[in-house]
Amino acid sequence: MTNRALTFRQDFWAGGMAVSGERYVTRDDGSALSFDAARNAVKAAPNVIHQGRVGPFPLGSKPGPMIVIVVWGGDKDIWYCGAVLCADYRPSTQAASNYYASFEDVVEVSCTVHDGHMWPQVNTNAFNLWALDTLASFPKGSRPDQFRLAPPPQGYACKRGPFTDHYGPGAGG
């Protein structure tokens, strides 16, 4: 829902935080991909801006200036519907962070915590305060070159720019 709100109401929102947010990946022509095909498309090209059903087709509207924090819960950030895997947030969060980071007037912050698919549990109060302070530090209309990312609380790996820990050597995915 956060990805959709930030994409369609850019005039209203100054930013937001997508925690394990779903960003559905499609083919470049906007046609649907199966769940596994979408996962594999991002895995095969993790640095690409993937077309997605969450936003306008084709993607490319200018969302900024705003700040977006994308949080991934690590290797266990998945959701099962009974015995069937029905959501994998590794490709979803990669696709979202790539999209937001592609705009020069958007401050995109990628955070990894290893809690799985739930609100961050490590130093929760410290994380909540850090996230609120980070979002508030970039009011609507701010200049991205003025943004300075404060260190996150212990247990979180956060950086400005798209995820680089999702795929590749030692990433587990």
Rank of each mutant, 00 (worst) to 15 (best):
M1G: 00
T2C: 14
L6M: 00
L6C: 09
T7Y: 01
R9L: 14
R9E: 14
Q10M: 02
W13E: 07
W13P: 01
A14R: 01
G16N: 04
V19P: 01
V19D: 02
V19L: 10
S20Q: 00
G21I: 02
R23L: 10
T26Y: 03
T26E: 06
D28G: 15
D29M: 05
G30Q: 11
S31W: 11
A32P: 12
A32T: 13
L33F: 12
F35H: 00
A37G: 04
A38V: 10
A38Q: 01
A41N: 05
A41M: 02
A41C: 04
A41Q: 04
V42G: 05
A44C: 03
A44H: 02
N47Q: 15
N47W: 14
I49Q: 03
Q51F: 08
Q51M: 14
R53C: 13
R53S: 15
V54R: 10
V54D: 14
V54P: 11
G55N: 13
P56D: 14
F57G: 12
P58Y: 10
L59Y: 10
G60P: 13
S61A: 15
S61W: 12
K62L: 09
K62M: 07
G64V: 13
G64Q: 13
G64W: 13
M66N: 12
V68R: 05
V70N: 07
V71K: 08
G73D: 00
G74H: 08
K76M: 09
D77F: 07
I78Y: 02
Y80H: 14
C81K: 09
A83C: 00
A83R: 13
C86Y: 01
A87H: 00
D88T: 02
Y89H: 05
Y89W: 02
Y89R: 03
Y89T: 01
R90H: 06
R90Q: 03
R90G: 02
T93V: 02
S97M: 04
Y99S: 03
S102V: 03
D105W: 05
D105N: 12
D105M: 07
V107R: 01
E108K: 03
V109K: 01
V109Q: 07
C111E: 01
T112R: 05
T112D: 09
V113C: 07
H114D: 12
D115I: 07
G116M: 03
G116C: 07
G116F: 10
G116W: 09
H117P: 06
M118W: 10
P120D: 06
V122H: 12
N123S: 13
T124F: 07
N125E: 08
N128D: 09
L129E: 10
A131M: 10
L132E: 10
L132P: 03
T134S: 07
L135N: 00
L135K: 05
A136F: 14
S137A: 08
F138Q: 03
P139M: 09
K140I: 02
K140S: 09
K140N: 09
G141E: 04
R143K: 15
R143N: 15
P144V: 14
D145Y: 13
D145R: 12
D145S: 15
Q146L: 12
R148P: 00
L149P: 10
P151W: 11
P152C: 04
Q154G: 11
Q154S: 14
G155T: 08
A157T: 11
C158E: 03
R160K: 11
G161N: 01
P162Y: 02
T164Y: 00
D165C: 09
D165A: 07
Y167A: 08
G168D: 08
G168Q: 11
A171N: 10
A171Q: 11
G172R: 02
